[in-house]
Amino acid sequence: MKIEEYLETLPDNLLNGEDVQLPEKSFREIFKFVNLDKDDIFYHLGCSDEKGIEIAVNEFGVKKAVGIDNNLEKIEHTKKILENKKINAELICQNIEESEISDASVILFWFTDETVINQMIEKFGKLKPETKIITIWGPLPDCLPDKVDFPYILNKVPFKKAQSMQEQLLAIFGVKCVDFVTAWEFAERYTKAIGSPEIKNDRFLTIIQTLVIWINAKKLGVVCGDEIPESIKTYINIMKMHFDIDFEYLLKE
Rank of each mutant, 00 (worst) to 15 (best):
L82E: 03
E83N: 15
E83K: 15
E83R: 15
N84W: 03
K85R: 15
K86V: 09
I87H: 06
N88K: 15
N88T: 13
E90N: 13
E90Y: 09
L91K: 00
L91Q: 01
L91W: 02
I92F: 11
I92W: 08
I92S: 11
N95Q: 13
N95V: 02
I96A: 09
I96W: 01
E97F: 05
E98C: 02
E98Q: 11
S99F: 07
S99Y: 01
S99I: 07
I101H: 04
I101T: 04
S102M: 08
S102H: 11
S105P: 02
V106K: 05
V106C: 07
L108P: 01
L108C: 03
L108S: 05
F109S: 04
F109N: 02
F111C: 05
F111Q: 12
T115S: 12
T115D: 13
T115R: 14
T115Y: 12
V116S: 04
I117D: 01
N118E: 15
N118K: 14
N118V: 08
N118L: 14
N118H: 12
Q119C: 12
Q119P: 00
Q119F: 11
M120G: 02
E122Q: 15
E122W: 03
K123D: 08
F124Y: 02
G125D: 14
G125Q: 12
K126G: 06
K126F: 00
K126C: 05
K126R: 14
K126D: 07
L127W: 00
L127S: 04
P129V: 08
K132L: 02
K132C: 01
I133D: 01
I134E: 00
I134C: 02
I134L: 13
I134W: 01
T135D: 02
I136T: 08
I136D: 01
W137C: 04
P139R: 06
P139Q: 08
P139W: 04
P139F: 03
P139H: 10
P141L: 08
D142T: 12
D142H: 15
D142W: 12
D142A: 13
C143F: 04
C143Q: 09
L144P: 08
L144S: 12
P145L: 06
P145E: 09
P145C: 12
D146P: 08
D146C: 09
D146W: 01
D149R: 14
D149V: 11
D149E: 15
P151C: 05
P151F: 07
Y152C: 08
Y152P: 00
I153G: 06
I153D: 02
I153Q: 03
L154Q: 11
L154F: 07
L154G: 07
N155K: 11
N155M: 09
V157M: 04
P158H: 06
P158E: 04
K160L: 12
K160N: 14
K161F: 05
A162E: 01
Q163I: 14
S164C: 04
M165Q: 13
Q166W: 03
Q166H: 07
E167F: 11
E167G: 10
E167C: 11
L169H: 02
L169D: 05
L170T: 12
A171F: 04
I172L: 10
F173V: 09
F173P: 03
V175K: 14
V175F: 03
K176A: 10
K176E: 14
K176Y: 01
C177Q: 03
C177W: 00
V178G: 07
V178N: 08
V178D: 07
D179Y: 05
D179I: 06
V181Q: 14
T182Y: 10
A183Q: 05
A183S: 15
